[in-house]
Write a protein that binds this DNA or RNA. Structure first.
Lengths: 159, 159
DNA sequence: TGATACCCTACCAAATTTGTCAACTAAAAG
DNA sequence: CTTTTAGTTGACAAATTTGGTAGGGTATCA
């Protein structure tokens, strides 16, 4: 089970936004600098988060990104869905591979297929449901709180 | 968040073992056939599961693999750790990238670094803990039960 | 002894992920 | 109204992971 850097980068950017005084846009450059990651890459991520209504953007001088919802309303599941999702849900179908020459026997293939399908589906669904549930329970607010309690360092906010 | 096919293949094989009458070894070929996946690949997976004490093996004719623990004692977290783990925990360190020319300003880099590190670590740990928790709660036994209840479809017995 | 079936290592091709570049558009400041 | 800031967008390249194959070895039983 892997947590992509994309999603963690995205969530880190959101934490940065949430930690900033409300209603004041923060530029990509600023976030990138504070979080020590590539401007160009972060741009992509924030763009997608904006398209899905997680953040809002303001253009021009003094512009930047702002949270579009309350931190309690944004979950890790949301971020992952927006940034990692889209393309492949990886399963859902095609899970039992073509098996090029494994099932050489034509006869009796049907029953096996159903059996394999059923187990594959069950395994996937049980795991997926549980994980989705816990990811949905981690909110941006939780993370902000954790950050505050975690270290004592006041995060040096100026500019 | 992605569930690798490796781990689902592995878990499917374990379900297959659990569903078989206990104490009777099942050959890789047999599992591969029933689950419709490549023998050679499955061999790798079962090999690693054996090294980590999840299954046991019996060599020679009539040999095969057997569960080494009760189905309640084997969780999805175990399988994932054995099959996907090892190499990259993906985070833990190095999460804040080199940022070639982003941090052009040499001064004040330290404080930023600490700040970035702290948030990165917090985000990662919160999410990881939750997910690990839910994966640890899904046992092989649960999956077997789900498979039994899931499909009422009598699997089309004619062959 | 020979067939069966696990043991183990190395390797590969393709997909995915991570990240960069560069040109473009919108809007506010001066 | 011009400049400058800053988001928009898409193409593209490098690195890593993934899913899978190949092929020889080794133990065990009939």
């Amino acid at each position: 089970m892997k947590l992509s850097t994309r999603s963690t980068y995205g969530m880190r950017a959101l934490v940065e936004l949430a930690l900033t005084a409300r209603h004041r846009p923060v530029s990509v450059a600023s976030i990138a600098k504070r979080q020590e990651l590539s401007v160009a890459y972060l741009e992509q991520l924030l763009h997608r988060l904006r398209q899905q209504g997680v953040v809002g953007s303001i253009r021009g001088p003094r512009g930047g990104y702002v949270l579009a919802k309350d931190p309690e309303q944004i979950t890790m599941a949301d971020v992952i869905r927006v940034l990692d999702g889209e393309n492949g849900e990886t399963m859902g179908k095609g899970s039992t591979n073509g098996s090029s020459r494994v099932g050489a026997s034509r006869a009796a293939g049907r029953a096996h297929h159903r059996h394999a399908q059923r187990i594959a589906h069950t395994v996937w669904r049980c795991v997926h449901d549980r994980v989705a549930e816990s990811l949905g329970a981690v909110t941006l607010q939780d993370l902000c709180n954790a950050v505050r309690t975690d270290g004592e360092d006041p995060p040096d906010h100026r500019f």
